[in-house]
Write a protein that binds this DNA or RNA. Structure first.
Lengths: 193, 193
DNA sequence: AATAGTTATAAACGTTCGTTCAAAACTAAG
DNA sequence: CTTAGTTTTGAACGAACGTTTATAACTATT
């Protein structure tokens, strides 16, 4: 008997994500969201709760697609190259001007995580996705002998995450190729020690 | 003939800095500022312009005191130890719960720099203060022979800044000693290569 | 064709926002 | 003691905020 939802919920959530991603939580207004999502506020509230829970859904969705995007680098024959190519991909995307708003997890880590427990939990989940990505590749490289067994996979994944986050912040304004290459060279050094 | 200003401008600006530092620009209201600064909105506007220019003044002030705080590490006899001790100081401050709001420059890099040219310029200035801090210490270490002349001071300072920023972001929520030590170990490795 | 049940619309709600400003408070000069 | 010039005060402004809601639109069942 009912009238089915007229919009694609996931596609609309993705649009909301892009607005939050661009301006952050506080600088995004509900009117910004209705415009970009293409639906009225009533539909947003009936579908996603309120502004805060919509943000939580967008953050959760971001984590979900992150996992999918990382798969590409996990499937390369060389796990060391998987890590390097991942850094190079970010470098090339940013330098080409195609990475418009940085890393949504990093942005949210600073803006919201210290003030909101649920957002903090999703941010931690996002960070853990990256830790696991690095750690799994390091361990895989160690089984094939490509990466030395002397390095600690857990510690090294934490270090690589730190390098990733740092360069993503510093290249948020005026990115240069050198900033990335300095980091990538250090990543190669770490994985070859 | 006039009535002299009743409040200490620099002390009041410092209070404003702490509010912006804690909540960010957008989540800080003028009412928050009047409360914490201890003066009324009229006095804020007549002294600092408006909310945005007050933020710019606070950011500039932060850069100024950063330079002063860094002097301590530049005066150590060992420049390598100057860098290490700097990282250790941040680690100990955060783990003791005394670093309440992270690095104001890093916070502003993500929240405001992409959307405000003047803020972006002050953020770049703050980043350059750190680059110069690392670079000068590396060069000094190279003149004394403590640090190898094979390493590039400019590139390495960029790398150290990346490591610093990364660990500051990741330890914004649930910091652990290990996160810092992994980074510090890598810093030592870099400075000894 | 009528109806029951759900969704979409957009105007309206009370609140809070950044900012302004007239009045009060004050001080140093005349 | 008066006055001219500056600062402080806090109420008030219009605008924008997140959210609600009554009404219209729509569809599957009867």
């Amino acid at each position: 008997m009912p009238w089915e939802t007229q919009f694609n919920i996931e596609a609309t959530l993705e649009k909301a994500l892009h607005v939050f991603w661009e301006y952050g939580y506080n600088a995004t207004s509900m009117r910004d969201l209705t415009k970009r999502m293409g639906i009225n506020s009533g539909s947003i509230y009936s579908t996603f709760g309120n502004k805060r829970t919509l943000f939580l859904s967008a953050l959760d969705y971001y984590n979900k697609i992150s996992v999918i995007h990382l798969k590409r680098y996990q499937q390369l024959e060389s796990s060391k190259q998987g890590i390097i190519r991942f850094f190079e991909h970010i470098r090339d995307t940013i330098l080409a001007g195609n990475d418009v708003h940085g890393c949504f997890i990093v942005n949210t880590t600073l803006e919201m995580a210290p003030h909101d427990k649920e957002m903090s939990a999703l941010v931690s989940k996002g960070q853990d996705i990256m830790r696991k990505f690095f750690k799994d590749l390091i361990k895989k490289g160690q089984t094939t002998g490509e990466i030395s067994s002397n390095i600690n996979a857990t510690d090294t994944s934490e270090l690589l995450l730190g390098l990733l986050v740092g360069v993503r912040v510093l290249t948020r304004t005026n990115p240069t190729k050198k900033q990335f290459n300095v980091v990538i060279n250090n990543v190669e050094l770490i994985l070859s020690s």
